[in-house]
Amino acid sequence: MIGGITYVSHEVPAWRGEKHYIAMVDLAPFDLPGMLEQIWLREADVEGSYEVCCIPFHVYGLALGDVVQKDESDTVDRLIRKSGRRTLRVLFAEPRPSVDARSALRRAVDSAGLLSEWNGDRLVAIDVSDLSVMQPVFDCVQGEIQGGTAFWEWSDSRDFRPA
């Protein structure tokens, strides 16, 4: 937290390359006032547009590969084009149960060839480019979801809205 604002960062963006840009997304429109998420971008095919290179932890309506625009203060202010990908987010609650699904989830994500990013050890954002490979991912966390020790959501359950 800096100056009363909490920053959510991506330590290892899914598509990290040599030439990238960082922009912020104000999370207030998503019921998270006082929080900003740092989004990694690279230049896209249209001048002034950027492709999202990380898997959003908290931003709704954005996914890996979406094309956005940023304003002069380096804040994402417009979604230009969807990539067709989705983001599944899973939050693991505390205290942890005796059967912890996080290791099984990591293995299922790797086995399915999916990309993911973790924010700490409790929140994971999973890039979903092909829904047909997701069943093993769902299966490994189902017990925790039913038991109330894990929660999931699709990031596209709400539209992107700039502040």
Results as ranks from 00 to 15, higher is better:
Glu51Gln: 09
Phe151Ala: 11
Ser155Pro: 02
Glu117Gly: 04
Asp26Arg: 00
Arg86Ile: 02
Pro29Gly: 08
Val68Tyr: 04
Arg42Leu: 15
Glu43Tyr: 03
Ser157Ala: 08
Arg107Ala: 13
Asp127Cys: 03
Ala112Ser: 10
Val124Asn: 00
Lys70Arg: 12
Phe138Val: 02
Ser116Glu: 10
Arg96Asn: 10
Asp121Gln: 09
Trp118Asn: 02
Pro33Phe: 07
Leu114Met: 12
Arg106Lys: 13
Arg122Ile: 12
Pro33Lys: 08
Trp40Lys: 08
Val141Phe: 04
Glu51Cys: 03
Ala125His: 00
Arg86Leu: 07
Glu94Arg: 10
Ala93Trp: 12
Glu47Asp: 15
Ile145Trp: 06
Gly143Asn: 10
Asp100Val: 04
Ser83Cys: 09
Asp77Thr: 08
Tyr50Cys: 01
Val67Glu: 03
Lys70Thr: 10
Pro97Ala: 09
Ala101Gly: 13
His20Tyr: 15
Ser129Gln: 07
Ala150Lys: 00
Arg89Met: 01
Glu72Ala: 13
Ser155Asn: 07
Val133Lys: 02
Glu117Gln: 07
Ala108Asp: 03
Gln135Cys: 04
Ser111Asp: 06
Gly61Ile: 01
Leu41Gly: 01
Tyr21Asn: 10
Asp156Ile: 01
Asp121Lys: 05
Arg106Gly: 10
Val67Gly: 00
Ala28Phe: 11
His58Gln: 13
